[in-house]
Design a protein around this nucleic acid. Structure first.
Lengths: 212, 212
DNA sequence: GTCTATATGGCGATAGAC
DNA sequence: GTCTATCGCCATATAGAC
């Protein structure tokens, strides 16, 4: 009987969450007003409070969902049993695709966790990311590849930096290196899916040569 | 006669600018209140308005100064006439040192330019950064090194990403890879000054091998 | 130049009708 | 569940005394 109400309810909540994610990502937690979010969702401002009590709770809910998008690719790079270099490629591919669809995500997430560093620890555990195993496996694989002296954490940091930074630094890069040509920059972002693994591949070749 | 007043004046303005930079970087433009800044500077809140009229103007002044710190190392990598790989090393070194002293700078700057992408264009020109020449020179040097197929802009993006990202992602990395051990992470950041050029060096070796 | 006191506006939050 | 009306706070900004 109240199918209508229920479905409207679910729909409203979903619309709030989508609108919130969009507005929070584009304007930041403090820059976004409840009115902005209500407008984006096409609903009355009071409804936000009805569904999520207050701005903080709404933000927390949204942030957890958004932050979670960063994890799957990170988990996959350790659990998969494929050869090391293939996994690296897949990692870059998976991350790039996610970021191409969520270009505002990195700035938003890293801004928030730098203001509030502690909130991530629990979320990471909930998502089942166990770093110790990852880096141990990483290390033995690097040794097999002849890169004994490459700390796996450095490789991981470099990898993430190469993949994510072009999104964070887009306004800067696009201005200085692409004369503000957005389409050219989009193409550039897509190219990186091949360029990054290529750079790493060359490094592995270099390492194996130097080893001899 | 009014030496006292003048020097107090200069001192006050300098203290405001230093306090503003610190507070803005740690709390963000919107998170920082004029009262926060006044407290940090040890002065009355009204003085901020006396010297800089309003919060926006104060922020703009501070941002320009802070953003400018990103430029010199970028300029040096193109103007210097030393061998290519040495310049890469110096670039990493210079940037890392600057970031070790300004760890909050990247999040702050990239947050702001992503909210307000246009403000950087003029500043860049004022600082005398001419990207076209840079990348042209870059390209010919990459060819000499046997990396014909490496777009210089990709190399530049990778380089900046590897250097800067560990600062932006510190809360994340430090949690997942260093069990929140801040000292260990500081050491890690310092190590990157050697690790990043080493990775690139291996890639160059790999490229020259593959070329044959 | 520096302070105290005050005006102004915006935003989050809630009460209450429907 | 959804809307209208309203309350109260806090931060920016300014007026005016010293």
């Amino acid at each position: 009987m109240n199918d209508n109400k229920q479905s409207r309810e679910i729909d409203t909540e979903r619309r709030i969450l989508e609108a919130s994610a969009k507005v929070f990502m584009m304007k930041g937690k403090l820059g976004a007003s409840m009115q902005d979010i209500a407008d984006e969702a096409g609903i009355n401002r009071t409804l936000l409070h009805y569904y999520f009590r207050n701005k903080d709770k709404l933000f927390d809910t949204v942030f957890e969902k958004v932050f979670a998008r960063l994890i799957p690719a990170m988990v996959s790079i350790m659990t998969s049993d494929q050869p090391f270099q293939e996994r690296l490629e897949q990692f870059v591919e998976a991350y790039s695709d996610m970021l191409l669809e969520n270009p505002y995500l990195p700035v938003f997430v890293f801004q928030e966790i730098s203001l509030n560093p502690h909130r991530i620890a629990e979320t990471l555990k909930e998502q089942g990311f166990s770093p110790k195993k990852t880096f141990k496996k990483f290390r033995s694989e690097l040794e097999e590849a002849g890169m004994d002296d490459m700390d796996p954490r450095h490789l991981f940091a470099s990898l993430l930096g190469m993949v994510i930074f072009p999104y964070i630094g887009r306004p800067l890069f696009q201005t200085i290196a692409f004369q503000d040509d957005a389409k050219a920059y989009d193409a550039f972002l897509d190219e990186r899916k091949k360029q990054i693994p290529q750079l790493l591949k060359l490094a592995f070749i270099g390492a194996s040569v130097q080893k001899q």
